[in-house]
């Protein structure tokens, strides 16, 4: 307890990135994640790093592209409409097989929407907002502690698979302060023989975004990307189970929605109703098999989101029994209400 500190989720992400060895951060401001650039602007110069407020979101992601190509650990952050603007760069980075960390503190949409927390960009994050057959590894923390821990892990995963990793939070997680313990650096060191470092005494490295011959180049490149994605699907699925051993009613939720669902489950258990929580921590790769196994024992599977139904599509793919599926969502910056979750689950008992 004694080494716990109180910080906003956004600030915790910043400090964790520095602990992970990130020394290059490029961004363009947007609420509700402005504490990340503010924190990085103050802290990065103290550790010999570079903070640069770019002229646009597109410029920022392309600066990350460049820093990453040179072998550095680089990060950018934004919120929903800003992430939309970064999609071109994210697709290029994925195509070039480069590692980087992207933080999205989602806010209400579509368009400029509002500045309150939301989960309406699940599709954008997990289905790729940019062009091409690519994937971004998406991690969805649910507390300030997890935001910090997962930021450190995100840099390792990015380097290990040479892939963009997205931390998908929301405005509430970014703005809230909670006690947490600073994560430790993982100590992992990844070699980057492909990095563009000046070609002194070796053949030049080339990082390409375009492969004009389809048969032998672009399709082959895509198949190579898919191989990496299969490896990630096999090895990097993360999720949390809460009171699922005897659960008749399974609530599936991530991030802030999962916190509220957990409170509802505590109340339901007091009434003797056997409810439990399945919380995906990676949204891609999604824990399909694990959720399938849990749902087979359940009478009903309720998905709770701060959207009008996005992750529920993955839940349907996992459960493969639409009669079991129910959904409750609030959107536009509104939070799901614990009492409403309780009311819904009670009603399943007849």
């Amino acid at each position: 307890m004694s080494d716990q500190i109180l910080m906003k989720g956004n600030e915790a992400v910043g400090e964790a990135a520095i602990i992970a060895g990130c020394r290059y951060y490029f961004a363009y401001p947007i609420t509700p994640q402005n504490e990340i650039p503010a924190y990085m602007a103050k802290r990065l110069p103290e550790v010999g790093g570079t903070f640069l407020q770019a002229e646009s979101e597109l410029a920022a992601i392309n600066m990350v592209f460049g820093a990453s190509a040179a072998g550095a650990r680089a990060m950018t952050s934004s919120s929903s409409p800003g992430i939309s603007l970064k999609q071109e760069g994210i697709s290029y980075i994925a195509g070039a097989e480069l590692p980087c960390v992207i933080v999205d503190m989602m806010r209400g949409g579509p368009g400029l929407g509002n500045i309150a927390g939301s989960q309406a960009d699940y599709f954008q994050a997990t289905r790729g907002g940019g062009n091409g057959d690519y994937r971004v590894l998406v991690i969805a923390p649910a507390s300030v502690q997890e935001l910090a821990d997962m930021t450190v892990k995100a840099f390792d995963l990015a380097d290990q698979y040479s892939i963009p990793v997205m931390i998908l939070g929301d405005g509430f997680l970014g703005q809230m302060s909670e006690p947490f313990t600073l994560p430790k650096p993982s100590g992992k060191n990844f070699k980057k023989p492909w990095a563009l470092t000046g070609a002194k005494g070796r053949k030049p490295n080339i990082i390409a975004s375009m492969r004009l011959t389809p048969e032998d180049l672009l399709e082959k490149h895509n198949l190579k990307l898919q191989k990496t994605y299969q490896e990630i699907e096999a090895n990097e699925v993360m999720y949390e189970s809460y009171l699922l051993d005897d659960a008749e009613y399974v609530i599936v939720a991530y991030g802030t929605s999962a916190r509220i669902s957990r409170s509802a489950i505590t109340e339901l258990r007091k009434e003797g109703i056997k409810a439990g929580l399945f919380r995906p921590l990676t949204l891609w790769p999604y824990p399909y098999k694990e959720l399938k196994a849990v749902s087979e024992r359940a009478k009903k599977v309720l998905t709770v989101e701060m959207s009008l139904g996005q992750m529920v599509e993955d839940v349907r793919l996992a459960v493969q029994d639409d009669a079991k599926i129910d959904f409750y969502g609030r959107t536009g910056g509104m939070l799901p209400v614990s009492e409403e979750i309780i009311r819904k689950v009670r009603s399943y008992g007849g």
Binding site: M1, Q4, L6, T31, P32, N114, I115, A116, F172, Q175, M176, S177, E178, P179
Partner: peptide
């Protein structure tokens, strides 16, 4: 309030209204 309650091992959260 949060910092004080933290010392007592309690769970705390703080979020400002913003906007």
């Amino acid at each position: 309030l949060c910092l004080a309650a933290m010392k007592e091992g309690k769970h705390v959260s703080h979020i400002p209204s913003y906007g």
